[in-house]
Each structure stands twice: as structure tokens, then as C-alpha cells.
Design a protein around this nucleic acid. Structure first.
Lengths: 247, 247
DNA sequence: AAACTTAGTGTACCTATTACACTAATTGCA
DNA sequence: TGCAATTAGTGTAATAGGTACACTAAGTTT
């Protein structure tokens, strides 16, 4: 390796998780973009963090943290999500790595992060993950690290810390692509649902109106769903047929 | 950060590129999957490295190396490719991050790598990039780091070091997906080409035969290509009309 | 029983995809 | 010079898929 020499660094620490004895990789983090559907709108899960001591320094962000040395990236994403929001058992899909050198500046103001990195001037490369859940099934809860956890309509995402707005935007794009090619399932729907609910889901992800008859024709022809012997109850209009996923 | 404590590490070095004075991120690398087309088959670019002193320890791998602290991931991919194969000016697209903890074992035998990492036991997370080029236009050359650089048919990729076979397989899958959705251009073709050449390209990427008439109908209708006032010369059969890309 | 609300249904047109076989133009060689 | 070899180039019919469009049905509330 002709190009490289070694330079002594006077103070160096290894970061360990004191409960579990895990060494942290100070250069690699994961960030999770969790999409939630409430049968009407598509939302994204955000956390609120106070950066530093000033009470004004409230910052919104995606749930994310550094990766441990002895876990896979996929694992890190699940663990971090659980730690920050108490959500578990969700399938998280990797969609992109973010790592332009400006990330260093974005992280500069975060004392807690600076303090536990070996090279504070170095950037953190982050691997973006996304998932879908039903908002009425799983209930995120803030941990000690995140002061607050909340849902926000994807059309109304506030200014986020770091480069998290970019990460959200990329995730939405990937989500639409995956949806177009039938790559995502129906984690976003209840077990029994009406075709109108299914159509609303499609419309909120694709962000456009679909024709009711054509939509029904398609999902029935492709056997995406099967009808149940059951109807909607307690609605103030004609009750709809309930369906479930095929297989 | 309640969970973390700091543990002193007795010997720590920072790795610097002595010519350019860049600090290396010891945890993050990039690997490039370069697809090349010779008007007949789709190939992938590999390098040959001797790992350690034993002459038998010849290892095939993708061109890849660690990322510098002050460059973007995209940049690192271009730089590393240039350093190892002398290829430049190629559009590289990120497609996936690889980081399961087993990567540590895969790297264990590589002395040169071990020696310049801060935590030799730690895994390297790698970001995969891919690109397409025409094999007759750009000619890769081995640098001092790579003893040899060579093309190999994608159906005949040998056993590679690290988890590089997995990376190649994933890249091929992404390539096919991108191609299906018209997301890749025609970096793989000469400026002037015949429709048969174009069809051969499609066939080698999609890995199946296409109908000649239907293929022509389609590319002409969609105005992907425009005919030139020029015909093929020096072939021992009916010369074909030459085409170029639209716009 | 009338008003309100959402469920549920069919047809006609247009576009895209597939399957399929022969003639045309050039070169090299007998 | 004409024949063999080779690849270029062309059209049609059938099927599948996508789009546009408007009314009746079944409940609930007042």
C-alpha cells in the first residue's frame, strides 16, 4: 500500500455499549424512514431530539443511530428503531447509502454525537432503511434518547436535522417505484379491508386518483385479494364487502 | 447517551495518504462492478491481487478500496476505479451497501488491509457501485495495487475474494431491473450502431432472445434511435442501416 | 319516506404485445 | 459471372391490457 502512511493519534477511545459490551462503529449509522397509513393518508415517523443544552435547540429527525461492530446493517436498523421508538418485528428494507463529506458539518452541533466518535471531524456515512406499517396496529413510543415520537403527513414533513429531508425524499421515490412493480405487500392494511380502502392506499402512495371500476377489475383479475363472507358494519351508508389478501 | 462509555485504546493510528494528505475512513469502502459489452457478450471487470507473500495466494476481486474522509461516496468510487484500473469519466451508480459482520472474517487474511485499519477486528462496510462501458472504447490498465485487470463473461465469473460474488450477483439483478424500466442509457454502444447490435445488447442484458420485427417496431416507435444517412461497410453480407441515439 | 352517503357494476375504444416467414443486399469463391 | 453464404429488413392478425365513463343498490339519519 504505497500510498499510505500511519500517523500517531494521541488520544483514542473505543466506544462501548456498557450494558451489552458492543463496540460502536463511529463512521456508520442507519436511519429509518417508517411509512404509516391510517386508511387516509401516508405518514412518516419522526423523532424530536434536544441537541445540546439550549432548550431552543429542538430538532426533528429520523430514528437513526450508529452501527455496532458485531451486527449486520439490517440488524442495526431493527435495533435502532426498537431503541428509539419501541417498534419491532417490522421488515426494514435498505434503499440507499448517504455519505457526502458535508455530513460532517451537519453533525458538528450535536455534542452527544461528537463526544463519542473517534474522529470528531469525520463524517458519518448513513445507510437508509424504510418500512411500512399500519398506524392503528403498532404504536411507537419515545425512549430516553428521543424525547418525542410522532407521525407526520408526507406532504407536511418539517425541516429535519442532518440531511434527513433528502433521505425522506429518496425513500418516497423508492417507495413509489417499489409499489409500481408490486414489490411491496400490504403491511399497511388491516387483515380485513374493503376495496375502497385498498384503493385509497394505492392513491396515497401513487399520489393520484384512480378509476374505481378499473381498479377493482385489476385487483380481482390479478387475484391480489379474495372476498370474505363478511360485510362492513356500523357505517352510515351501504356496507362494503370485506376482502383479505390472497394466500 | 446513557448507553455508551469510552474505553481507552493504547495504540491508535490515523491512516494518511502521504501524497495527497487524505485521512482514510477505516470502516467504509466502495466496490465497483463495471459491466462491459463487446457487441456480443456482457462482461464484468475484475482485478487480480496477490494477498500476502505466498505466490499461490492469488485472489480475484472487484476494484474497490477504502473511502477518504473528505470525499463523497460517489467520488470515492470514481477515484478508486481510476486508481486500480485507470478508467475515468464513467458514470457510476450506487446500488447497495453490504455490511454483515462476517465481512470481518473475509478480510482477515489480507495483511495489507489489516495493517492499515484502526480496529483490525472490525468489519468494513462496503458501498456497491456499478457502471456500463464499451469494451472497445475504454481500456482498463492495472495499477501497482492490482497486478492484473481483466474482463470476464458474466456467466463465467470465478470465485472472488471477500463477498464479491454476492456483490456481482446483486449488481446484475439491479442492472436488469434498471434496464427493464429504461433507466440505463446506451453507454454500451458505439455512436453509430445497427439495430441488430442494439438488439444483441438488449438480449445479453435481459438474458433471453427477442423477436427481430417486434424489437425494431418498438425502438422505432418510441423514437429511442434515429437512422443516419450511412450504412455499415466491410461486412460480408447485406450492410445494415446505421442509427444513433435520439438527442 | 326522503335525504344522504358510499358500494358496486359493464362496455366500447384504444394501445401494446406476441407470434410468425419470406425477400433483399452484399461478399467470397468456384 | 453466378452461386453460396450471411445478415438485413419488412407486415399482419390475434390477443391482452389500459382507459374513459354514469348509473343503480344498500345501508343510515332525520
Amino acid at each position: 500500500m504505497l500510498n499510505y502512511i500511519f500517523v500517531f493519534q494521541p488520544t483514542q477511545y473505543q466506544i462501548k455499549n456498557f450494558r451489552m459490551n458492543h463496540t460502536v462503529n463511529p463512521h456508520v449509522s442507519v436511519d429509518c424512514v417508517i411509512f404509516g397509513f391510517d386508511n387516509e393518508r401516508l405518514n412518516v415517523l419522526l423523532i424530536e431530539r434536544t441537541a445540546g443544552d439550549t432548550p431552543a435547540a429542538v430538532q426533528y429527525a429520523l430514528p437513526g443511530d450508529l452501527v455496532w461492530e458485531d451486527e449486520s446493517l439490517d440488524n442495526a436498523a431493527s435495533r435502532v428503531l426498537k431503541e428509539l421508538t419501541n417498534l419491532e418485528g417490522i421488515y426494514l428494507k435498505q434503499f440507499k447509502a448517504f455519505g457526502n463529506p458535508n455530513r460532517v458539518n451537519d453533525f458538528k452541533d450535536l455534542d452527544w454525537l461528537q463526544s463519542y466518535r473517534q474522529q470528531p471531524q469525520a463524517r458519518v456515512i448513513t445507510i437508509g432503511y424504510y418500512a411500512f406499517i399500519r398506524m392503528d396496529e403498532l404504536h411507537p413510543e419515545a425512549s430516553s434518547f428521543a424525547e418525542k415520537v410522532f407521525w407526520r403527513d408526507i406532504h407536511e414533513v418539517p425541516l429535519l436535522g442532518f440531511d434527513h429531508n433528502e433521505i425522506v425524499d429518496e425513500a418516497i421515490e423508492v417507495l413509489r417505484n417499489d409499489f409500481d412493480s408490486n414489490k411491496i405487500g400490504f403491511e399497511l392494511l388491516p387483515d380485513k379491508f374493503t376495496l375502497s380502502q385498498l384503493q385509497t392506499l394505492y392513491e396515497s402512495i401513487l399520489d393520484r386518483k384512480l378509476d374505481k371500476r378499473n381498479f377493482r377489475k385489476k385487483v380481482l383479475k390479478e387475484s391480489i385479494v379474495v372476498p370474505l363472507d363478511e360485510k362492513q358494519k356500523g357505517v352510515l351508508h351501504k356496507p362494503a364487502q370485506l376482502f383479505e389478501l390472497n394466500q
